[in-house]
């Protein structure tokens, strides 16, 4: 049998003839709002964060497996493409965290009025951009410094 909810889309006129009830309009009829982009972004970044966590687990697995596997993992995390992926993961996690905190605040019953939601949206974007940039640059600096220090000490990386 098909989707049982379809049963509710068939109604009858006063003369007894059947009529298909109208469905509610879909997304494209609404005017663009920042909040709708932020809303779906929370889901998308959640999926990306999961993908990143999967990569993180593989990295940990490589560390557990031994130096050889870990060297391969470092080749991935060390090259520019890998670092771009890591930055994407970082940005996604930061946005998903910011969005998650907003959700927890809403669940507690605050900042849920239309004006408040519209005011907080741009703030969430700025906080995400700021925190991601600071963390990303700082992590790159730390990793770079440690790598250079090791090269200086004459150890093979």
């Amino acid at each position: 049998m098909q989707d049982i909810r379809k049963a509710l889309y068939v109604g009858s006129r006063s003369d007894g003839t059947l009529i298909e009830r109208p469905m509610s309009p879909h997304l494209q009829v609404y005017r663009y709002r920042l909040s709708m982009v932020l809303s779906i972004s929370n889901r998308i970044t959640g999926v990306i964060a999961t993908g990143g966590a999967a990569l993180g687990v593989f990295w940990l697995g490589a560390a557990a497996k031994g130096p050889k596997a870990f060297a391969t993992a470092r080749k991935v995390t060390g090259n520019p493409l890998g670092q771009l992926v890591l930055l994407g993961w970082l940005g996604s996690v930061v946005y998903h965290t910011v969005g998650g905190i907003r959700h927890l605040i809403w669940d507690a019953g605050y900042r849920f009025d239309k004006e408040e939601v519209n005011k907080d949206g741009p703030v969430a974007v700025k906080v995400t951009a700021g925190v991601s940039a600071v963390l990303g640059i700082a992590l790159l600096c730390v990793a770079g410094r440690r790598r250079r220090a090791r090269v200086k000490a004459g150890k093979a990386s």
Partner: peptide, 9 residues
């Protein structure tokens, strides 16, 4: 991750 960035095995 700040402690481990660029760390070896």
């Amino acid at each position: 991750m700040f402690r481990l960035g660029g760390a070896d095995h």
